[in-house]
Design a protein around this nucleic acid. Sequence first.
DNA 1: GTCTATATTTCGATAGAC
DNA 2: GTCTATCGAAATATAGAC
Lengths: 186, 186
Amino acid sequence: MDEDRSTRERILDVALDLFVDQGYDKTSLREIAERMGFTKAALYYHFASKSDILMGLHMRMHNALDDLLPELGNPPVSLGVWERFLDSCIDRLLANRKLFLMHQVNQSAFEKVHNQDHAEEHLELAERARKLFSDPAVPVRDRSLMAASFAAAFITPMMAGRMFPESDLENLGDVLRDVVHAVLKA
Amino acid sequence: MDEDRSTRERILDVALDLFVDQGYDKTSLREIAERMGFTKAALYYHFASKSDILMGLHMRMHNALDDLLPELGNPPVSLGVWERFLDSCIDRLLANRKLFLMHQVNQSAFEKVHNQDHAEEHLELAERARKLFSDPAVPVRDRSLMAASFAAAFITPMMAGRMFPESDLENLGDVLRDVVHAVLKA
DNA sequence: GTCTATATTTCGATAGAC
DNA sequence: GTCTATCGAAATATAGAC
């Protein structure tokens, strides 16, 4: 049961690499199995379906961020609360760049899986953000600034993995916090 | 030959909608043909392959931005030049939200098509940006700020289509220019 | 330019042995 | 837990008539 979990996680690691490089749809179970050193059919012992592998990675992302969501409190969200929330997110985003990049690159693959597998239960960040940015109780300009700071905080770390050498990443967190601050004061 | 072009463009319009809503991979030629009012095989008169349709939309994006690229001049790019460049981009991004959203949502679909179809010739914005953000001749902090402002300027318009009513979009351009300015002064 | 019909391929998934 | 073998579905693409 413990060896089992380890194999499961290794499959997820392999899938993460392939899904980032080739995309979810263009990655076949055969390829994943090949890298694992066994056959396609063996995967079905560990995962019920291909989309179940995607869900496994999705859950990793939930684990990486969900405990920060309470910081947002109830709507309407003020600029101050939003800034502190993004501040907290940034370190997690930098630490899990590949995982978030996989989500960004495979957005379309998730749209279908979402409705299938965890339907209601996802008080997802994306959903929360969408509602927040549409909330008429918040001034339009503030909502625009929140959206822009969200984009800067969330997307830059994903670009960074492909653009900066590992060494330059150390200070990126602090720079991004400065950026978020500057945007919300604009 | 002129009727031909019009049908071609209408196919691209239909494909654009479907690729945004369902993703490139999950959209079949059958669906596109159905919306066009003819059959799958007829598409092959207008496009050589499915990925050729994707390329058609890709070219639309080139047309929407390529004339701005000269503004960047030669590397290394200063913060001032970068700001003016993003300023120019923002209106185009807002005017072509759906097209850019399609690219963002289907990133993984493009990675394959790129290497196939226009190999070398693409002095693509993405490529230019990647090289720019890695340029050692530019201070690390400046490169981080350029990446963050890029993310804010390019991603926010795509989010806006899903988040704001059409009426709120009018001022978003000016807000985003303020944001870019604020980030690069951070 | 659009049709019908079909070739071809690839993939996700299952059954059952070991 | 992993294997071989196979099924069935769906999709891209082609051939050739109209």
